[in-house]
Simulated scan of single mutants.
Amino acid sequence: MFRFDKYNIADWFSFYRIFAVPLLLGLVWFGERQLFTWFLLISYSTDAIDGFLARKLNIVSARGSQLDSVGDQITLIMGLIGLIVFETDFMKANYGLILLAFIPYVLQMIIAFIKYGKATAFHTYLAKTSAVLQGVFILWLLFFGPVYWLFYTMIIIGVLETIEEISLIYMYPHWVKDVKGIFWAFKDDRRTARSKTAKENGV
Rank of each mutant, 00 (worst) to 15 (best):
L99H: 07
L100T: 13
A101Y: 02
F102K: 02
I103P: 05
L107W: 14
I110Q: 05
I111G: 08
A112S: 04
F113S: 08
I114Q: 14
K115H: 14
A119K: 05
H123S: 01
H123A: 12
T124V: 14
Y125G: 04
L126Y: 13
K128Q: 10
S130Y: 08
V132S: 02
L133T: 12
V136I: 15
V136Y: 14
V136N: 14
F137L: 15
F137K: 09
F137D: 04
I138F: 15
L139Y: 07
L139N: 04
L139D: 01
L139G: 04
L141S: 04
L141G: 00
F144K: 14
G145S: 08
Y148I: 02
W149I: 15
L150A: 11
F151A: 01
F151M: 06
F151I: 07
Y152S: 14
I155Q: 03
L160A: 04
L160Y: 08
E161L: 02
E161P: 03
I163G: 00
E164Y: 03
E165W: 00
S167D: 10
L168A: 00
L168V: 06
I169P: 00
M171S: 11
M171W: 07
H174L: 10
W175I: 01
D178T: 07
D178L: 07
I182D: 10
I182H: 09
F183G: 01
W184R: 11
W184N: 03
W184D: 09
D188R: 00
D189E: 05
R190Y: 01
R190T: 06
R191N: 13
R191A: 09
R191G: 12
T192R: 07
R194T: 15
S195I: 08
S195C: 08
K196G: 00
K196Y: 05
N201S: 09
G202I: 11
